[in-house]
Write a protein that binds this DNA or RNA. Structure first.
Lengths: 185, 185
DNA sequence: TCCCTTAACGCAAATTATTAGCGTTAGGGA
DNA sequence: TCCCTAACGCTAATAATTTGCGTTAAGGGA
């Protein structure tokens, strides 16, 4: 979306920043169903037509903001061993994603008409897993298969968050990790 | 949504049927992003305000229609054995859900502001699994754990459909089932 | 069967969101 | 520094949504 802009600096960037900030602020206080483009525009000090032209519609704007928030900034904690690294990461992931803002971000990303958004979102997760995997290999530990973790650990957590059919409590997450690592796939 | 109506018969039911039909027809020919309430209203022979008042907004209407389409009508095929029953069901499930209309239905249900919609949707899946489980028990076969199938088979399939990070081809689905049944959980 | 109550509807006016045209501003390369 | 034009602001259409109010028709009770 805002990635392949022809002009990246100056005014354009300032507006993007202002709009993103406004969206984040509004998401914290306002229910998504009562958020409107004119509302965001006013808070950002731009005209609505600017937002419509640049992002298309509210869904795409929200997806853009959500994806920006999900983009990795720091590596997962290094706990000293692969199993505990993985456990810590997954528990954190579940907690963040199942929170109110986390849910909102996921839903925004999945609703984007930009087909690549959802894919990129799961790439971020895989990137983190790759970091943990590299770290394990560097330690001389047995590596794990990323796709396997996605299927056995991440997918069920995401499913329960989306369909609201159970809590993704730390114990449950740890169980998923343990079971996945113990089964010799 | 349309479940706890105070009046269930006559005109009200006719309108619900007409609106549902219109939505289904439109979904087949029109892209969701260009579907509007007035459009549906005209096709159904009702005024837009009727739809707004009854369903709230387009998202909730679409979720209502999607949920109605997902509601089980027939039991899964009986193939004679638990493993093949499960395999057949899962492959079918993946094919239906990953289709264009399937994706649309999932997304509509997940977007509903009615919190229970998503939960009910996954209840439908569990109902089918329960049928297969009962059938297995009646045959004297070893039963499977429904939650386990949800986590190990359904969840990954759903994840890949939603995040578009891989195809849920029959072979992949069969692999998930096989691996889940072979690991003694 | 025939009222009576009121949920659900239709219509239309008011409000609000979205789109489109056109002139203006300000990146960024020559 | 100048020029080109992407990106913006403003405003006038257009379209969607909300709201008030009168009307229709379920569904229960006499």
């Amino acid at each position: 979306m805002a990635k392949e802009m022809l002009r990246q600096g100056g005014r354009s960037a300032r507006i993007q920043e202002a709009v993103h900030r406004s969206v984040r602020d509004l998401l914290a206080t306002t229910d998504r169903s009562e958020m409107t483009v004119p509302m965001i525009a006013e808070k950002s000090g731009v005209t609505p037509s600017t937002i419509y032209r640049r992002w298309g519609d509210l869904s795409d704007l929200l997806a853009d903001v959500a994806l920006a928030r999900m983009r990795p900034i720091a590596d997962p904690d290094d706990t000293g061993a692969m199993a505990s690294d993985l456990e810590a990461f997954v528990v954190d992931y579940a907690e963040e994603m199942s929170s109110s803002v986390g849910r909102q971000m996921i839903s925004d990303v999945l609703n984007s008409s930009v087909e690549a958004s959802a894919f990129q979102c799961c790439q971020f997760t895989q990137q983190h897993l790759q970091t943990l995997r590299d770290r394990a290999l560097a330690r001389g530990e047995a590596a794990f298969d990323i796709d396997r973790i996605m299927d056995r650990v991440i997918a069920p957590i995401m499913y329960h968050i989306l369909f609201r059919d159970r809590d993704v409590a730390p114990d449950y997450c740890r169980g998923l990790v343990a079971e996945c690592l113990s089964d010799n796939g």
